[in-house]
Design a binder for these strands. Structure first.
Lengths: 123, 123
DNA sequence: CCCAGGAGCAACCTGGGAGTTGCACTCCGG
DNA sequence: CCGGAGTGCAACTCCCAGGTTGCTCCTGGG
């Protein structure tokens, strides 16, 4: 199931897409700093409308980065570290993989080079 | 030089923006798999034009994720793990920070709740 | 010296995301 | 029961990133 060779995580792309927008990152920052806040409150700290904030929160929620809880007539949003952590791990794995491949390619290249220059006598 | 303490990385946003596009991720995948390839070759493995590939490679290069080397009349591109690793670490740190804040908020909330219900006698 | 395959440039088109406005609905307090 | 605060939904505008086409400019090989 979780053994997709390359490009595992399903949610990774939504997380990346969500994180790509600066406003959404600001939003996450505020959310992380203030704990549980309503969209209206957040809009007060940003140069955008409440509606825009709501939309962004929707995207972030779809990516699993935040979650909202209804309290009376308001909705308190809070940050959700799990999704971010998963993406971070995915990324780290990818980086390590690249490193591995690069090392391999480099070794092969060196070997090939050594192989292809018998006539040359560097000292 | 590249040592901003926390919240740091200037390049993080460009990396995230670069990674947000699926085509660019495919591109990185191919690049990681094949080592050193030209834009034209890459375009052959993708449903887009060579020009589109070139543009994407430009973005990826600006984000420090790839680098191109001129060899004769062609340009070989290769993947650059450093930037990705840095972003991965930044992300992991951020996730940990959120976790910390959440734990704190939770503790405070619990304390406050305990504080606010002296009249109730759950016996 | 010529030509062919590859890279670079510039103008152009287009879909979707970010943002706004306007209104209907819901919930709490007096 | 009524009014106001707060949220939810929908239509609309604007802008830009992704993609294309059509060239020109190198460069290397015969």
């Amino acid at each position: 199931m979780t053994e997709k060779p390359a490009g595992a995580a399903e949610g990774v792309d939504s997380v990346l897409a969500a994180l790509a927008d600066p406003t959404r990152r600001r939003l996450l920052d505020l959310l992380a700093a203030q704990g549980e806040v309503t969209a209206t409150t957040l809009a007060g700290s940003l140069p955008v409308t409440r509606q825009a904030v709501v939309k962004h929160l929707g995207v972030l929620d779809a990516a699993g980065l935040v979650s909202g809880t209804r309290v009376g007539r308001e909705v308190r949003y809070s940050v959700q570290p799990a999704a971010l952590g998963a993406t971070a791990r995915w990324m780290a794995t990818l980086a390590a993989d690249w490193d591995r491949r690069l090392a391999t390619v480099k070794r092969i290249a060196e070997a090939a080079e050594r192989e292809s220059r018998p006539p040359e006598t560097p000292r």
